[in-house]
Design a protein around this nucleic acid. Structure first.
Lengths: 229, 229
DNA sequence: TAGGTATTGTCTCAATTTGCGACAATAATA
DNA sequence: TATTATTGTCGCAAATTGAGACAATACCTA
């Protein structure tokens, strides 16, 4: 991580959404020996597109390549500049000799959210962090800097978008039941939806393809599996 | 414009919308002796919030203070880095001796759109530019760098938002007729709307306050004036 | 002063969409 | 074979939307 490899003053943060156990979750990492929790983020190389930098960062954390990704806001308040936080992280990690002063400068951060299939991912921490793990969005640990605000805004944007873009399916496996899809919508919107109405609306979009039934072994009618397209 | 006054690698651009003669227009400036057209933009001071920097820039160009402003996207492709363009602008302006090399570096730009009342503004160019003037959005001159793309995305976002937020009124004087408001919506959406339906929907929001009638002198029923709130 | 005209505010009616419950079909189990 | 939980779909009322129609109005003309 040489000084001149990266654009100064510019960072990105990712809110990575997954869905499991009927709950919406995001990836949060914890830095070594600091008790600091943060969103996975990173910096942009001199010769790298901003969007590509974010995908690179997500690849490192999730192993995934073709992630559904959306930029939603750029956070640029002076108040988010707290060099002592960055210093604490650097200290706790005993990083070998190099010029890290650029990391102590003020950063403006471009925030993205990603939607991924929970089961596809084994979260991977990096050299600076202890862990990278899933947390329910309504049971997050206190996040450093303005990262809680970033999550809040990501959720707002996701809620706004789910009605307009057919985006919910990105949180599920390729094939899913209508009930699973409904649970995703309910977790995002934070409210119960009427089953019949939901099914009717989803089918009317025409983008769902119906496949074979899923026999779960339960004593009831088996649901169809669906996929997008 | 000293080197260390501003954050390196970070800029902003504003798409300033106004409405006049039934047309949606934006502010475009032209640099001295270069034939280069650009969106009004600027840089962020070391101790300045990003949002405040944009307001400062708008104040300089429009003289206005309380502008409706929305951040909509951050453009960060490497391809938008074209130092020869910046060099051309600097050369054409014969700027006194100082270190301008930071201006030739790569920039990531945070884009905002603003909605203002056309009549409130007399566009003001700055030291680097010939003119700052209104252009119809569908008759823009070729803009430098990726500024045409930025305008395109601003329009998309504005169209998306006009249905959800009651934003159209920001392009009009404090008091306006229903017809004027409808024309604003039509210009943004690019389609004709049904008069009765439009009036019904607007009134049903409850945010319009009805004032006295406007007697224009024309031989027909005089319309009411409305304002928001 | 009476009639003409363009525009406005509102209404009506049909078409469409939505909310909500109900029913038959189904996949096990007892 | 009866039971049970769940699914796919339907029906109906309520709400929303699209489009035309009509009376009221402001001013002009004759």
């Amino acid at each position: 991580m040489q000084e001149d490899d990266y654009l100064h003053h510019l960072a990105f943060d990712s809110v990575v959404f997954g869905f499991s156990g009927e709950k919406l979750k995001i990836l949060v990492l914890e830095y070594h020996n600091t008790n600091l929790f943060a969103l996975p983020g990173g910096f942009v190389r001199q010769d790298e597109n901003l969007n590509d930098a974010v995908r690179r960062g997500l690849k490192e954390r999730t192993g995934l390549d073709n992630i559904y990704l959306e930029q939603f806001y750029t956070f640029g308040d002076v108040a988010r500049y707290k060099p002592e936080v960055m210093e604490r992280i650097i200290r706790a990690n005993e990083i070998p000799d190099q010029d890290l002063s650029w990391l102590l400068k003020r950063f403006v951060s471009v925030a993205y959210y990603a939607l991924i299939n929970f089961d596809d991912v084994v979260p991977v921490p990096d050299a600076l962090s202890d862990s990278c793990a899933w947390y329910e969005v309504d049971r997050l640990p206190p996040l450093m800097l303005d990262h809680t605000e970033i999550v809040e805004k990501a959720l707002e944007t996701l809620r706004d978008n789910i009605g307009r873009k057919l985006v919910g399916g990105n949180l599920l496996p390729a094939r899913f039941t209508m009930k699973e899809l409904q649970h995703v919508y309910e977790a995002i919107l934070g409210e119960k939806l009427h089953r019949g109405t939901f099914q009717r609306k989803m089918l009317s979009t025409g983008v769902l393809k119906r496949h074979e039934k899923q026999y779960s072994g339960a004593a009831n009618k088996a649901p169809f599996l669906y996929s997008f397209e």
